[in-house]
């Protein structure tokens, strides 16, 4: 099969903007001049959906007691407005949390620290709602050559190896892994393609690459060299450094299967 044919009819690689949410508002600075209120996650989500994002991730980083209620209202508004799938993560620690998010219109939930603390939570979510909505986010840092899982946004080290943990979350029913390299995150020097490729060959569920996006070439690299199924980024999209239509056009030119 030649490249053109493989490109023509197959599952496409996904481009996923990530929105950090605090008390119902987007956190990272956003400079879309055409948006009346760039801090409004719904307006931003709509813009991304229209310009060709394949999925969205909302990461709730607020810490107040009122947070859950605000988040649920937001999830509802996003689900009512956009017609592409979206994942919600941050602070999910029980099946009851998941139930509320899904019932308000989230398509998938992403769990991170709570899965490490209570791995059975993965089984419980997958059993009740299916693997298709169970995303396990893994933050890992390479220390002395070893990729180790970290918690609380990379601040707390664990004894878990990235690859052992990935195999375990797959076995427990995760439908997808969102892997963020703490070494690459914020550098804009590209994704952790070595670890990504190893991860992608080790497990048989989709891998979302996260951390390090700085240029359009980085996205091509993570799909080709990193064998990622999807690539997630925040600031390069929010600051309009990379426009999604241009990025997708570029990737298609590189013979990467992309939805345009």
């Amino acid at each position: 099969m030649n490249l053109y044919e493989t490109n023509k009819k197959m599952l496409t690689k996904r481009i996923i903007p990530c929105l950090d949410i605090k008390d119902g508002r987007t956190v990272k600075g956003v400079n879309f001049l055409e948006l009346k209120d760039a801090g409004d996650p719904v307006e931003l989500a709509k813009k991304y959906a229209v310009t060709g994002a394949d999925e969205l991730v909302f990461l709730d980083i607020s810490a107040t007691e009122e947070r859950r209620k605000t988040l649920l209202e937001l999830v509802r508004k996003v689900a009512a407005t956009i017609n592409i799938p979206f994942t919600v993560g941050g602070g999910i620690s029980s099946v009851a949390d998941v139930d509320l998010l899904l019932r308000n219109g989230a398509d998938k939930v992403s769990i991170n620290s709570s899965a490490v603390k209570n791995p059975d939570l993965i089984n419980e979510i997958a059993k009740k709602y299916g693997s298709q909505c169970t995303v396990v986010a893994i933050d890992a840092k390479q220390i002395d050559g070893e990729w180790m899982v970290h918690l609380v946004g990379g601040k707390v080290a664990t004894e878990l190896s990235l690859f052992d943990w990935a195999l375990e979350v797959e076995k427990r029913g995760a439908g997808e892994i969102l892997f963020t390299s703490m070494n690459n995150d914020g550098t804009k020097n590209g994704f952790a393609n070595g670890a990504l490729a190893k991860l992608s060959e080790l497990v048989n569920i989709p891998i979302i690459a996260s951390g390090g996006a700085g240029s359009m070439e980085h996205f091509a690299d993570t799909f080709i060299k990193g064998k990622a199924d999807a690539a997630l980024a925040a600031s390069v999209f929010h600051y309009n450094e990379i426009e999604i239509p241009k990025l997708k056009h570029y990737l298609k030119q590189q013979n990467i299967a992309i939805r345009i």
Binding site: K9, L11, Q132, G175, E176, N204, I205, P206, A230
Partner: peptide, 15 residues
């Protein structure tokens, strides 16, 4: 089968 990733997740075409 496990020749490709399972679940299939994302955008594909209908023909």
């Amino acid at each position: 089968s496990n020749e490709l990733k399972v679940p299939q997740m994302g955008w594909n075409t209908i023909t």
